[in-house]
Deep mutational scan, measured.
Amino acid sequence: CHSECLGNCSQPDDPTKCVACRNFYLDGRCVETCPPPYYHFQDWRCVNFSFCQDLHHKCKNSRRQGCHQYVIHNNKCIPECPSGYTMNSSNLLCTPCLGPCPKVCHLLEGEKTIDSVTSAQELRGCTVINGSLIINIRGGNNLAAELEANLGLIEEISGYLKIRRSYALVSLSFFRKLRLIRGETLEIGNYSFYALDNQNLRQLWDWSKHNLTITQGKLFFHYNPKLCLSEIHKMEEVSGTKGRQERNDIALKTNGDQASCENELLKFSYIRTSFDKILLRWEPYWPPDFRDLLGFMLFYKEAPYQNVTEFDGQDACGSNSWTVVDIDPPLRSNDPKSQNHPGWLMRGLKPWTQYAIFVKTLVTFSDERRTYGAKSDIIYVQTDATNPSVPLDPISVSNSSSQIILKWKPPSDPNGNITHYLVFWERQAEDSELFELDYCLKGLKLPSRTWSPPFESEDSQKHNQSEYEDSAGECCSCPKTDSQILKELEESSFRKTFEDYLHNVVFVPRKT
């Protein structure tokens, strides 16, 4: 048989008469490798580009789960590009990614509803959504962080984005990388972005840091009482949809009607710091009717980097990364020049730590249904340095008659930039024990000054392991946590139920 035959053949030295091919099969003959313009397919066939392209389009058009959109890589027609490569849609070739590779997620039936953290986790790592997304989240724990972890990498949506009755959302900033909504599939009414009845939605994105392009379709905003109209108009300008909307697409009466839409800028007039305090004062603000001013709200939190936005980490279910302080308005003076500047002394802060701070007014709604208010920009203030805590785990070892090696770990709280350490030492008198000992005694162990690591005695271990207080009263049991108490109650309830079950099964009433 021919060298490319495997198993047997019907005619000697003829690659077209093989029972099976050793390498690849091409047009009725066995070959060692697939010549151009053919590609290896499933490690035994040679196919042309049209064959591989037909497989790709067949799966793409069917949208069946589990099928493969075949691509070409290293002269092979394979189910998908290997790690580190992405497909070129024009020629199906796998090309190296520039940075992290995109991950295209194809949605069944063309859309997916995100109504819980669990459903959001199914899209973790996706960068391109081939379909439409509907966000409908009523509640949950730590929602802002969970949504950002699972949806934060999405850069492109081919269909539309719909935010509907998501009472738990305060902001859409968890879509931190969303840059493009194509609108290839539109919501009824030709809408590519749809926001309806979101009672706590206050911000779409921080438009000073976020760009969003909507290729096709219109915007729809109705019944978002805490979303200011200025935020919607800003989205029109940034996304390129200005002029597409009709009169009733953006409701003037049901958007922002319960919001404090600040239209003035508060400026800080005085800032002073110490290692654990920050004193702030800002310019006074009074609405047209000074009785509408209820006070100020001061927001602050630790910020290692200057990239904080107002609604980071917030949701309507209680999660809030900001510390909020309510401040009463100052006494009002008739003389504008003698107006008191409101302020606040922030206490209990960490030394040498940068804080993000902003302040906003708290006002009631005027009778004319106009909203007044003022808010400052987010500023960054760093507390002063102070003395560091003591170095940890000092170790001293003498390696000769004239040297001592000293080692330690950095302090747990540096409280500033540590530039150097101060080492103090003092000579001590020799131990009298060394002169009084009889060095001729056998088995004498000389006193040693070398360091030995501390260890816990058996008594201390027994005390720590004991669940009861000892007789001397030195140790006591740790208080039980809520989960331990709940577990004990469940076990007790189970024992009672099981005992009742045994009584009912074992003891049967005697027939009379």
Rank of each mutant, 00 (worst) to 15 (best):
L147Q: 04
E148I: 13
P394E: 03
T254V: 06
K226I: 06
I157R: 03
K103Y: 05
L108C: 05
N320R: 14
Q314L: 11
C261R: 04
L180F: 11
L151N: 02
G295I: 02
A303I: 13
K409C: 10
V397Y: 15
S319I: 13
Y300A: 05
L266I: 04
I135F: 04
K112T: 08
R291V: 03
Q216P: 01
D384A: 12
Q382M: 15
T383E: 01
S192R: 01
N190L: 10
I135M: 03
S333V: 08
W322P: 07
K267E: 03
R138L: 14
M346N: 04
K242C: 13
E231M: 13
C126G: 05
V381R: 13
L151F: 03
S158I: 11
L151A: 06
W205L: 15
P391H: 01
S269R: 14
L108Q: 04
V238N: 02
L345R: 05
I114C: 04
R332V: 11
S274W: 08
N263E: 14
Y300D: 01
E111A: 00
S192G: 13
G139N: 04
P394Y: 03
L133A: 04
W282N: 01
K267R: 12
K409D: 04
R202Q: 00
N334W: 12
G131E: 03
K253T: 14
C228Y: 03
E146P: 08
E237F: 06
S401I: 11
N263Y: 02
L294H: 10
F174T: 06
L227C: 15
L123N: 01
A259H: 11
S208Q: 08
E368A: 05
L362C: 04
R281P: 01
I134G: 05
G125S: 05
L153E: 15
S192M: 04
E283G: 09
P336H: 10
A374P: 11
H222S: 08
F193N: 03
L349T: 08
T383S: 08
K209H: 15
R165I: 04
L147H: 00
E262R: 01
S239P: 03
Q216F: 13
L265A: 09
Y223G: 10
T113Q: 15
P284F: 04
F174D: 02
S166P: 03
K253N: 14
L298Q: 01
L252T: 09
L108P: 11
L279M: 15
L172A: 10
L294F: 04
S132F: 00
D393C: 15
F296N: 00
T371F: 04
F174N: 03
W352S: 14
K209S: 10
P351I: 07
L108F: 12
L123Y: 05
W322Q: 10
S333N: 08
H106T: 11
N320W: 09
K209F: 12
Y305K: 02
C228T: 03
C317R: 04
T185H: 14
T213W: 07
N141Q: 12
P329Y: 00
C261H: 03
G125F: 09
T215V: 14
H233C: 12
A374Y: 06
I135S: 05
S401V: 15
W205I: 06
R202I: 04
F221W: 03
S230K: 12
R202G: 05
D257Y: 07
N399V: 08
E302C: 15
I250N: 15
K253S: 13
M297N: 14
S389M: 03
L265S: 13
S239D: 05
K350C: 11
S132R: 01
G217V: 02
N150G: 08
I232F: 08
N263K: 11
K218Q: 08
N130C: 00
S173N: 11
P410L: 10
G313Y: 09
I379D: 01
G139L: 03
C126E: 00
D249S: 06
R281T: 10
T273I: 12
W205V: 09
W322L: 03
F311P: 09
M346G: 14
V397T: 14
Y167L: 05
L212Q: 07
P329H: 02
N387S: 05
M346D: 01
S166K: 00
N320C: 10
I188M: 06
D249A: 11
T371V: 07
L266H: 01
G110V: 03
V390R: 15
R347N: 07
L107S: 11
L201C: 04
S398I: 06
T353Y: 03
K209G: 10
Q306I: 03
N211Q: 07
I378Y: 11
R124I: 05
L186S: 13
P336K: 10
H233S: 09
Q258D: 01
T273S: 07
P394R: 07
L161G: 03
S239Q: 08
S402L: 13
A251D: 03
W207V: 12
N387L: 08
E184A: 13
G240N: 04
L201A: 01
F221L: 09
L293C: 02
S401M: 02
Q203A: 05
N263R: 12
A195T: 12
K234R: 10
I378P: 04
N130T: 07
L229K: 09
N307Y: 02
T361G: 04
K177R: 10
Y167Q: 04
L153F: 09
A251K: 07
D335F: 14
T309L: 14
L204G: 06
G256M: 02
S260M: 06
S398P: 09
I378E: 01
F358D: 01
C317Y: 04
G313C: 08
F311K: 13
Y223D: 03
L169A: 14
S396I: 07
S239C: 13
P288H: 08
L331M: 13
L229T: 11
K226P: 01
N200G: 06
T213V: 09
L252V: 11
R244Y: 12
H106E: 08
Q216M: 14
L331P: 03
V117L: 08
W352C: 13
R124F: 05
Y191T: 12
F221I: 15
S158R: 11
I181N: 04
D249F: 09
G183R: 05
L153W: 13
D312T: 15
E148Q: 15
G343N: 14
W205F: 11
R247C: 11
V238F: 15
D206E: 08
E246C: 06
N141Y: 13
R247Q: 05
S398T: 15
G348Y: 03
W408S: 00
R347T: 09
